[in-house]
Design a binder for these strands. Structure first.
Length: 670
DNA sequence: GAGCACTGC
């Protein structure tokens, strides 16, 4: 028993396990053989197989980096790219940035020495803009491809094209079991033989290889009848585990902050009724909206005679891994974003998870020793779940993707070889928006220079249009700050439980009559003049210091882009112009309208908004300054439906005639 | 009176 305790709270992290002992080691020869012989290798690797850390080293040793070529390993997330690079550098006994490096937005730790490079898949796509055949790389490994993120899917399509022009390129796709054949079929195309012996499915193009993982068995239990209230049921299950099962921490999957807060509350209340001599329960929330510091609590070992209960969103399904979890409680739902092409509105709703998700959640219980997973639904319900989650490319606003593909020289989006094609309505809607912004012409070609430049800017198309229009309105310097702040997506303010009123009064100090965009500008300017080197200043004003630093980086990057286009950003000009303070806000309001005219709404007497067509009732999001304030016409950055309400966020007042002035085609004068 | 998770020179 003592040794088991030691294992689960071991101070020697799993990453120091000798590499030779990893399950992948005995497949080294066959892996290298496959990569040598076939252009595409699909690696089905269970958790802990060592594929991400070992395979790149094998390839390096086998000479794939001779002639100055590099091995790229892509990750869907920034943190993964940095942590894996650090670990591989340790194993290869070098500093990160030497033989092993990583490259993510704002952080490039690579050098002329670098042979193995970890990067986000979005970053590799960006590299394809300047090096369309990705000719620096001899091998490209796409890790976690089964997650089917937007960039992963686009990257796979690009790689398929590149492969035809670069037969010597080696592509490795790491996937979960379920999708391995889909990937192989995609790359093998006509050569895929569905009737062949499974070993020969991929013809001369590729093969699938399976690596066993380091997982302990997980017992899965279902409910006999459906739960009425899964939050309540989750709490009950936590106490059943606590009183009846042996030691080990618990991970509960719920869908959002509200449910999590309620569950934490219930657990705390009922924990008071536990027998005084029994072990204590320590409930901890985990969701992306928490600050990094608040998230760190889930990694701290609890004291003796106590058990952690981590109540989490989907963030713990793939992005965050916590050691010591022995029990998983799965509510069977997750909140998922989807884009409705007929309304142009994003929805965020709780939907049943897929079988693949359920398996992944259960697996979180078997990382340190055999575990148990309690599913708060019946086995029959489980059987009816879809096999896999619908990939993002089939439920997203595709305007940014269309722009990106166009910038990469792929003109015919409809005929582009996607792993799974997006629905036609999504593609049509994207083109309609881009056409209305002037980014594409009647033939769906990128316009010059507007469309071309918009495609290169790393902001959404509406904001890209605004930035490129800003010089005309003499507000480029201001608009750069606004674009950077909007890119932070609502992380500007620190969320505080205790003092909502204090937070509100701090926000009001920066408030500007015209709305959220000018308020952002105010915050940004205050930060760079007063708080740039001072995290205390941010704390005092309940601003998120790291987010603000990020805004500075984003702004700098956007500015460099514009300068590369030959657009001068005169930072002194804007200060001189503040003499004429009455005029500046109007120029910004006008400029915003040139990009956001499709996101216009009119306030109704009851304080809600209606779209121009008049159909839909919109509510100002409570985080907006326009919540509880009077306005007439407004434009907004984002529209999202959650529950039964549709919210707009980042709102600025405008005049109705701006719409007619800057989008006469869109708002035909009647 | 409130939003799942990610990403980009």
């Amino acid at each position: 028993m003592a040794s088991e305790q030691e294992l689960s709270t071991s101070f020697i992290p799993a990453l120091y396990k000798p590499a030779a002992l990893l399950p992948i080691a005995r497949h080294k020869a066959s892996l290298l053989y496959l990569v040598e012989k076939y252009p595409v290798t699909i690696v089905v690797g269970q958790t802990g197989s060592g594929k991400t850390t070992q395979l790149p080293q094998y390839l390096d040793q086998a000479g794939w980096c001779e002639d100055g070529k590099l091995i790229a390993v892509t990750q869907p997330r920034r943190v993964a790219a940095t942590t894996v690079a650090t670990r591989v550098a340790e194993e290869m006994r070098c500093q990160v940035g030497e033989a092993v490096g990583y490259s993510i937005r704002f952080e490039d730790l690579t050098s002329a020495e670098t042979r193995v490079k970890f990067l986000t898949d979005g970053m590799l796509l960006r590299e394809a803009l300047v090096d369309p055949l990705l000719s620096r790389y001899s091998v490209i490994m796409v890790d976690e491809a089964h997650e089917r993120s937007l960039s992963t899917d686009v990257l796979l399509g690009i790689l398929k094209k590149i492969r035809k022009k670069r037969p010597e390129l080696r592509i490795i796709i790491s996937s979960a079991t379920l999708q391995a054949e889909d990937f192989l079929r995609f790359f093998a195309g006509d050569e895929y033989h569905p009737d062949a012996d499974s070993a020969e499915l991929g013809g001369s193009i590729g093969r699938i290889i399976s690596l066993e993982g380091r997982m302990y068995p997980v017992d899965t239990l279902f409910l006999e009848s459906p739960a009425e209230d899964y939050v309540e049921r989750a709490v009950k299950t936590v106490f059943d585990i606590h009183t009846q099962e042996s030691e080990g921490d618990i991970l509960v999957f719920l869908t959002g902050r509200e449910e999590i807060d309620r569950a934490i509350q219930l657990i705390s209340e009922r924990a008071a009724d536990l027998h005084p001599k029994s072990d204590s329960l320590v409930p901890l929330p985990l969701y992306a909206g928490l600050t990094t510091e608040q998230q760190m609590y889930v990694f701290e070992p609890t004291g003796e005679n106590s058990r952690k209960v981590i109540v989490s969103t989907n963030i713990a399904e793939a992005s965050v891994t916590i050691d010591g979890i022995v029990y998983v409680v799965d509510c069977g739902f997750a909140k998922l974003r989807a884009y409705n092409p007929s309304t142009g509105i994003e929805t965020l709703t709780a939907v049943p998870i897929s079988k693949a998700s359920a398996t992944q959640r259960a697996g979180r219980a078997g990382r340190t020793r055999p575990g148990k997973c309690f599913r708060l639904y019946t086995e029959q319900t489980y059987e009816q779940l879809p096999e896999a989650t619908i990939p993002e490319i089939q439920r997203s606003n595709l305007a940014p993707i269309v722009m990106q593909l166009k910038a990469l020289g792929i003109d015919n989006i409809v005929r582009f070889d996607f792993l799974t094609s997006p629905p036609a309505e999504l593609v049509i809607r994207a083109f309609e928006l881009l056409f209305s912004l002037g980014a594409v012409d009647d033939y769906a070609k990128l316009t010059k220079p507007l469309g071309m430049r918009m495609a290169e800017l790393a902001v959404d198309p509406m904001m890209a249009k605004v930035l490129l229009a800003a010089p005309t309105f003499n507000c480029l310097s201001e608009m750069l700050s606004i674009a950077a702040m909007v890119s932070l997506q609502g992380t500007v303010w620190v969320q505080s439980y205790d003092n909502k009123k204090a937070a509100e009064s701090h926000r009001r100090k920066f408030a500007v009559e015209e709305g959220d965009h000018l308020t952002y500008l105010n915050v940004y300017q205050a930060f760079v003049t007063k708080g740039k080197k001072d995290s205390k200043w941010c704390r005092d004003h309940l601003l998120n210091y790291r987010a603000m630093q990020r805004a500075v980086s984003i702004r700098g990057q956007l500015k460099r882009y514009l300068e590369r286009f030959g657009i001068q950003v005169d930072e002194t000009l804007s200060r001189q112009q503040t003499v004429d303070t009455s005029r500046q806000p109007e120029q910004i309001q006008r400029c915003l309208t040139t990009g956001y005219f499709a996101h216009a709404a009119k306030m109704q007497p009851d304080g809600t908004f209606k779209t121009v067509s008049g159909g839909l009732t919109l509510h100002a999001h409570p985080s907006s300054l326009m919540f509880n304030r009077k306005a007439d016409w407004v434009i907004f950055h984002e529209i999202m439906q959650t529950g039964d309400k549709t919210y707009i966020r980042d709102i600025t007042k405008i005049e109705k005639n701006y719409l007619l002035e800057y989008a006469p085609e869109y708002y035909k004068v009647t």
